[in-house]
Amino acid sequence: MTEVKIGAARVSRIEESYEPNFEAAKFFADWQPDVVDRHRDWMVPDHYDPASGFLKLSVHSWLISIGGRTILIDACVGNHKPRPARPKWHLMQTRYLERLAEAGVRPEAIDMVMCTHLHMDHVGWNTRLDNGRWVPTFPNARYLFSQADYDHYLALDRDPQTGPVNQGSFRDSVLPVAEAGLADMVSGAHTVDEHLSIDPAPGHTPGTVAIKLASRGEGAVFCGDILHHAVQVFHPEWNSFACADAVSARKSRRRVLEDCAGSGALLMPAHFGAPFVCNIDERGSRFTPRFA
């Protein structure tokens, strides 16, 4: 288990899966095979699988303990969720909740769940299957959702031409939380408390946010899918196939990298391979990751 100290905060990585799961050339339209040769020293084997040509991506949550509160950032894919268009994520059976318990936390102990955006691999464990119904996994938590993302996907989901969206994840992993009265919608820049704040970072989705943690002069930025893979630190102009607004996604990615480089905040992505976190160094207009 990856564990990081940020001031008084203890941050733990709760893994759902970590494997080669997307073909690099299809994931990034700008992908060039020689990028592996240039970055082989850090990319293989933790971030790229040469045998398959697949990116090796982690799917995990970040668990924060600070000030007597326990916060979960991003909720992965979830068990029993029907996702036939993504075979590796279809009807998953993982030890996610057991790993949460190994970190010393029961679902009932989570005070807040924060989703960087509402794609299927960031909302799945918001709910669990209980006697054929999807019910909130963390019954005592408040769930913070981006109002922009919620409104966007709600409209699409209700439209008979487009719904259900995100392979049904909005219906089975977001709406049950809202219907249970546990969702808090956030718009624009938002201060959660003295340690946590939210900055809008649209592009990957309309309501993608960066979540910032600050404690005792130290900081971290939980970037969700603003960056999927560490190669994007070197190439912030690279968007994934899943970025809805290419121009805004590039702007948000560069802004996060500049923020981390300028402040010294640790970058805490949702999908980077081992060691899963990094600092960002900047020289001119170029960035490099500095792995712990």
Results as ranks from 00 to 15, higher is better:
Gly262Ile: 10
Phe222Arg: 05
Pro107Ile: 02
His47Ala: 12
Gly273Ser: 07
Pro206Ser: 08
Phe276Met: 03
Ile211Asp: 00
Lys251Asn: 07
Asp281Ser: 14
Val247Asp: 14
Pro275Leu: 06
Ala25Asn: 08
Thr288Ala: 14
Ala214Arg: 07
Ala274Arg: 09
Tyr18Met: 06
His229Lys: 14
Ala214Thr: 12
Asp49Tyr: 00
Gly124Lys: 03
Arg142Ala: 10
Gly53Phe: 08
Leu72Phe: 00
His60Gln: 12
Met185Trp: 07
Asp149Cys: 13
Ala274His: 07
Gly264Lys: 10
His117Phe: 10
Val36Phe: 08
Leu97Pro: 01
Ala24Met: 05
Gly68Tyr: 11
Ala51Trp: 02
Ala274Trp: 01
Ala25Asp: 08
Gly203Phe: 02
Val105Thr: 08
Val192Pro: 08
Val36Arg: 07
Ala265Trp: 07
Gln161Lys: 14
Leu156Met: 13
Ile73His: 03
Phe272Glu: 00
Arg83Lys: 12
Pro50Val: 10
Glu258Asp: 15
Asp259Thr: 12
Gly188Ala: 06
His60Arg: 05
Cys278Asn: 05
Leu63Val: 10
Leu175Met: 15
Asp30Arg: 08
Val135Trp: 02
Phe234Glu: 12
Gln161Gly: 12
Glu282Cys: 15
Met185Thr: 01
Pro82Gly: 04
Trp62Arg: 02
Cys223Tyr: 01
Arg95Glu: 13
Ala261His: 02
Glu98Asp: 15
Phe28Ala: 02
Val256Leu: 13
Thr137Glu: 05
Ser285Pro: 02
Ile198Met: 06
Asn279Trp: 09
Gly67Asp: 08
Ser240Val: 12
Ile64Glu: 06
Glu179Lys: 14
Arg216Ser: 14
Asp245Tyr: 04
His152Cys: 10
Pro84Lys: 06
Val186Met: 05
Ala220Lys: 04
